[in-house]
């Protein structure tokens, strides 16, 4: 895939830092977050829970709670800085330009209205369609996400659908107004394993058909591998590695990425059987992040410099980078990947 030119850039996040007001000062939840998503491309934000993936999504969609403070950075969408826009303007972009899919489809739908009413209302309020036309459009979009007998099911309430079907409905609402950016926050985590793949297939199909930019937030490396173009790995509120998904998986430049990959059971095609690895220790308390590299207490390769100096993003070529003092060594050391 040729490198994206700036004109195709859909979303660009630069130097974003978000803190939460707490007793005794502000706790930084995000720091130095920079990434971009291009049209027709999928970027995965990968990390453990608490690493800051969801806060990033909330910052983009203006869903941050009142206690959150954006202390620096910009979120550019279509040339506009979303963080500087009035809330009303941001809301105007929501739905029509950006959509979002939530983790738990059981609670993401309003229980007191039929799904037909909820989706049709989108078309009526946002596109000014008449009652009947809106109903037609709702049926179409439900059909699009693969719900059988769409027209009849318009009159059903959310609780009359299964979990997988409800996630399809949430996706249907998110893409109903044909946004150019879709943020999917752990879209399969709450679903049965059998349904997970279907939903990811659906998201992939819709993305291709609509040429959407997709920001996929997940902790599931398997999901990432299947549908993602690029990946950004987050650890303790920072991006520790970013790059093309193949390169990152084949040659991780950060020991944390390496640890994550090693903790995944080898797939059948992988051949070599190794004992399943885990990363020792726990992610740091955001109120007491370690000096130097935040990962050093858990890093098997940590040196003195890691304890004192914060590593910069090391450019590993072709858009691949990692914040490790020894990133180049990690990538070059074929022995490690034998």
């Amino acid at each position: 895939m040729p490198p994206a030119t700036p004109s195709e850039r859909c979303l660009t996040v630069s130097d974003l830092a978000v803190g939460f007001a707490a007793r005794g000062g502000t706790i930084l939840a995000l720091e130095d977050i920079s990434f971009h998503v291009d049209a027709g491309e999928t970027l995965s934000l990968l990390g453990e829970s608490g690493s800051g993936k969801s806060v990033s999504a909330q910052a983009i969609m203006a869903l941050l709670p009142d206690t959150a403070v954006v202390s620096s950075g910009t979120v550019r969408f279509d040339g506009k800085d979303l963080l500087a826009l009035p809330r009303r303007e941001t809301r105007r972009l929501c739905g029509t330009e950006m959509g979002m899919v939530f983790q738990d489809p059981l609670t993401a739908l309003n229980p007191v209205f039929t799904v037909g009413d909820q989706i049709a209302e989108l078309f009526r309020v946002r596109q000014g369609l008449g009652r009947r036309a809106a109903r037609e459009a709702a049926a179409d979009v439900i059909d699009t996400v693969g719900i059988p007998d769409a027209r009849r099911r318009l009159g059903n309430y959310p609780h009359q659908f299964s979990g997988g079907m409800r996630q399809r409905l949430v996706i249907a609402m998110a893409i109903a107004l044909k946004p150019r950016l879709l943020i999917a926050d752990e879209p399969t985590t709450a679903l049965d394993v059998t349904v997970q793949a279907q939903i990811m297939d659906l998201l992939g199909r819709l993305q291709r058909e609509h040429n959407m930019a997709m920001l996929l937030i997940t902790h599931d490396l398997g999901v990432v591998a299947d549908v993602t173009d690029r990946v950004a790995v987050m650890y303790s509120g920072r991006i520790v590695e970013t790059g093309d998904v193949r390169r990152v998986y084949d040659r991780p430049g950060h020991p944390y990425t390496r640890g994550l990959l090693a903790s995944v059971p080898a797939t059948a095609g992988g051949g070599k059987h190794q004992p399943l690895a885990t990363i020792g220790g726990l992610p740091p308390n955001p109120q007491r992040r370690p000096q130097g590299c935040t990962f050093h207490p858990r890093c098997p390769f940590a040196q003195d410099i890691c304890r004192t100096e914060r590593p910069p993003m090391v450019d590993l070529g072709n858009g691949h980078g990692a914040t490790c003092h020894f990133a180049r060594e990690m990538v070059a050391d074929d022995r490690l990947f034998a």
């Binding site: 959509g99 979002m100 949430v170």
Partner: peptide
């Protein structure tokens, strides 16, 4: 604090819309 309220926001719902459609029915 329910997710469907956040979901409505991501679909561009105004405060008035959320109060009328999400809060009042409940």
């Amino acid at each position: 604090s329910r997710t469907f309220v956040d979901a409505s926001r991501t679909l561009g719902a105004t405060d008035a819309h959320i109060i009328i459609n999400c809060i009042l029915p409940a």
